[in-house]
Nucleic acid binder design. Sequence first.
DNA 1: CGTCACGTTGACCCGTTTCAATATTGGTGG
DNA 2: CCACCAATATTGAAACGGGTCAACGTGACG
Lengths: 268, 268
Amino acid sequence: MYSMLDLHQRTSPLQWLLIAVAQKWVATLVCDMKLDLKAKRITQDPLADISPWDTLNWHSRQILNDMSKVITFRKETVSEHRLFIVLSGVMAVRRELSDGRWTFSTLFKAGDIIDTERHERIHQGKLMALNSVDVMLVTSETFRQCLTTTPDINRVYSQVMRILAERARDHITDLACKTPTELVASVLFEFKRWPQSIQINKSDTVVLPISRRNIAHYLGIKPETISRVFNKLETQQLLQVPLADHVIMLDAPKIRQIANGGHPRGQG
Amino acid sequence: MYSMLDLHQRTSPLQWLLIAVAQKWVATLVCDMKLDLKAKRITQDPLADISPWDTLNWHSRQILNDMSKVITFRKETVSEHRLFIVLSGVMAVRRELSDGRWTFSTLFKAGDIIDTERHERIHQGKLMALNSVDVMLVTSETFRQCLTTTPDINRVYSQVMRILAERARDHITDLACKTPTELVASVLFEFKRWPQSIQINKSDTVVLPISRRNIAHYLGIKPETISRVFNKLETQQLLQVPLADHVIMLDAPKIRQIANGGHPRGQG
DNA sequence: CGTCACGTTGACCCGTTTCAATATTGGTGG
DNA sequence: CCACCAATATTGAAACGGGTCAACGTGACG
C-alpha cells in the first residue's frame, strides 16, 4: 500500500499502466485480506451465525468467546464435558435400560446449549456425537457467574433452555400418543426446521441429519418400521426418497396433517 | 393478661382458684395464639417446607414472598398463568393431537416451578390441575429481574429447571423403550419419591396421587392395561393393591429391577 | 334412586416387533 | 480402479402384545 503511494509521486505513461495493474492487484489482495479477516472473525465468533445466539450484542458474544474454546467431537464420541454450546452437527443423550435397550432421549443441534451437569442423582446417560460436532466449551463456574453478571447472556440462555423444555414436551407427546407413521412424519418436519448442513434450494427437500437407525432409536421404534413407513408414504405419492438420507415432500400439507395426528390406528 | 396481674394484687382462696383457672385458660389461649401465629407464618412463607426452596436463605424467601401471592386451582382447572411455583397437589401439561388423542407430557409436584411462557411458537398445551393445587404466583417481569439480582434465587431456579429437564429425559426414555409393565413399575417409584399428601408410616406403601386414568395418559397407555399390569404383579406376589390408590410393594427390589428394564417383550 | 365417572374383565384383532435373509452403502487398502 | 469388509438399510413371514370395544361392577354425589 505504501509503495503504491510512492508510485504516485512520479507519473509516466508506463508507470500509469503499472499503477493501474498494481492497483487492481492490490485491490484483489485487499479484498482477499478482507475475506480472510471475515473468515477469521467467524471462526473467532462462531455464535454470530447461530440462532438465537446471534441476538446477543457484540460485547456479550465477546465475553462468551473469551471464556470458551471451540473443540470438535468426532462421530460416535462420548463427551465427558457436560456444559457447552453446539455449533454444528448433532449430539444426543443416550440412555439405556439394564437389558440393553436404549434410546436417544434428546437431540441437540446447532444453537442448543447442553447443560446436564450432575446434581444429586448420578446417572443421566451418555452425551454422544452422532456426527462430527463442533462445540463451544465453557467452564462451569465462569459461565454460571457470567449468567448473573450479564443479563444479555442470561436472556438467551434461559430462552434456549425454555425452547429445549418445550421440545422435550413435544417429544414426549409424540412418543406417548403417535403411531409410527405419525412419528416419522413429525420428525421430518423437525429436521426440516433444523439448519441444514447442505443447503438445498428445493424447500420441500429434507436432508436427514442422522442415520435412520438413530432416527429409529430417537422415535422409540425399529429401523424396519421406518423403512416400511417410507414405503407406504411413497406409494401414497406423499413423498419421494431418492437417496437414503434425502426425502422430498410431495404433499407437505398432507404430511403435516399426518404428523399432527392424522393417522391413528386402524387406518391401514 | 393485664387483668391477671391485677388479680394478683389481692389474693383470697377463691381468687387463687380463679387465678389458677384463669392461668390455665390463658395458657391454652396463648398456646392457641402461638399455633395460629405459626400457621400464619407458614402461610406467609410457604417455601420454607418445600425442597429445594427450603435451601434459600430467609432474605431470598422474603423477596419471593413479597413479589408473589398464593392462589389455589381447583381440580380440573386450566390455568392461564404460565409462571408459578407449585406448593401442593399435582399440575400437568396436557397436549393434544388433532384427532383427540392426548397425553400429560409433564407432571408438576410441590417444589416444581412452572415456567412455560410462550416464545415464538404458539401451542404449548394446557396447564391443568389434576388435584386441588396451591401455587405461588409470581409476575414475570419481577421474577426475571429478581433472577439477575438475587444469585440465591437464581441458583435454586436453575437447579429446579435442570431437575425438570432430567425428569423429562427420564420420561422420554420410559416412553421410548419400556413395556407397560416396566412403565407402571417406574411410575410407582416416581410417586414414591414424591412428597406424600398422606403420611404413611409403612415406607413400602405408595399412594397414587392421581387417578389411574390420568396415570395411563401420562404413560401413554390405556387404563385397561394398567389394571392388567397390577393384576399380573399381584398374582406374582410382587405387590398388593388394597385400595385403588394404595399400592404396597411386597418385593421392592424386584419391582425396581422390572422398572429398570427387567420385563421386555416375550416374558409373559 | 338415578346419574356419572372411574375401574375392571373378557374377547378379538390390527400392527409392531421379532427373526432371518438379502441388498445396499460407505470406507479401506491393494 | 476394483475387491473386500462392515455397517446400514430393506424385505418377507410369523407371533405376540396392547389397543379397541363392549359390558359390568363400584363408589361418590345430589
